[in-house]
């Protein structure tokens, strides 16, 4: 089985050990037929499947986080390449910079055209550094903004793939006003007259994720996470211990299902068992299907309706009480 070649995560260790045993047994089997061994092998294989199902059926927040951050997880380019092998990449913010952490292009998915935009993490070490680990600079957000306007002009839908730890806390980013870059994106996205779909494919990190995340539909892959601050940040600020990451993952309710239950995400897109990194083709195919379904639904709305739909979606979000009790009671 090809999926056993994937680097196992910490919580996947029991599964990996079982896989090792099976492999060793299979090697022995190759040397000669032995009915005793065959029985053992069947039993182990059954056990493996059972363990796999129960393991992935009961994931904690921090396990989803580990899967969302898996080094072999498919990134934006992997999806674009599979959806449209001939997709045309577009570069630059037209103001002096092209941010490699923000990828954009013209994509035709089964004949349906849209502008694809997404954060890119990078695979090799050099690549990761080049992409700043998926953390765009303000220029990256402005590149996305330029293409939102492009899409608006030509009536093309926008699909944003989000997999970023967040905005980059750096000197350059602050000097070039990343807060403004994000804020303007939020405002302009809410005013677009074309369908916008945002997909959290991995990590949805705070403002950096939201900067391309204001959409008519928010989809989340099964093991993706979306949070207001990184769980490490939350742990170090609130609990004063950076090692309380598991607790803050649970407290913040950041997994796809929890985010859907809070009314923020519209749909959770299933991944191959064990995570999208086990089968890129399946992950891209499945996400493509769901995207087309939503794009078809949205294409029935008129431009003003699309804008209103998006505005109303975010206008509703929030939980508060009307209280007449005296303050501090």
């Amino acid at each position: 089985m090809a999926d056993r070649k994937v680097t196992p995560l910490e919580f996947e260790q029991p599964l990996a050990m079982l896989a090792q045993q099976i492999e060793a047994l299979e090697k022995q089997m190759g040397e000669g037929v032995n009915p005793e061994l065959e029985k053992d092998l069947n039993r182990l294989n059954q056990q493996y499947d059972q363990l796999k199902r129960s393991l992935y059926g009961n994931l904690r927040g921090i396990d989803h986080l580990a899967l969302a951050r898996h080094a072999q997880r498919p990134y934006t380019r992997d999806y674009f390449d599979r959806w449209d092998p001939q997709w045309v990449e577009l570069h630059g913010d037209r103001q002096g910079c092209d941010d490699p952490a923000m990828v954009a292009g013209l994509i035709s998915l089964k004949g349906y055209r849209f502008i694809g935009i997404g954060t890119q993490k990078g695979r090799s070490i050099r690549d990761k550094q080049h992409c700043n680990f998926g953390m765009p600079q303000p220029e990256g957000y402005r590149k996305a903004l330029r293409l939102f306007r492009h899409a608006d002009k030509f009536g093309l839908p926008v699909v944003n793939l989000i997999d970023t730890p967040g905005a980059y806390p750096g000197l350059h980013a602050e000097e070039h006003n990343q807060a403004e870059a994000i804020a303007v994106n939020l405002r302009e996205l809410s005013g677009l007259k074309v369908p916008v779909i945002a997909v959290i494919t991995g990590e949805g990190g705070s403002g950096g994720a939201l900067a391309i995340g204001v959409a008519n539909r928010i989809l989340m892959l099964e093991h993706s996470v979306y949070s207001v601050i990184s769980p490490e940040g939350c742990a170090s600020i609130l609990c004063r211990y950076a090692d309380k990451v598991a607790e803050s993952c649970a407290a913040m309710k950041m997994t796809a299902k929890e985010i859907r239950d809070l009314g923020v995400a519209d749909e959770v897109v299933p991944e191959p068992l064990g995570g999208a990194h086990h089968d890129y083709e399946f992950a891209a195919e499945k996400l493509g299907e769901v995207l087309l379904k939503h794009l078809a639904e949205l294409s029935k709305l008129s431009p003003p309706e699309l804008k209103k739909d998006r505005h109303d979606k975010f206008r509703r979000l929030g939980a508060f009480l009307e209280s007449n009790e005296p303050i501090g009671a």
Partner: peptide
Amino acid sequence: GARMQEGILSLMQLAKTSAALQAFHE
């Protein structure tokens, strides 16, 4: 900044206020 204790709903307030400003702006 955003209030961590309300999780993702706090983050969504960024979008909500910006969307309101978009209408105001227009």
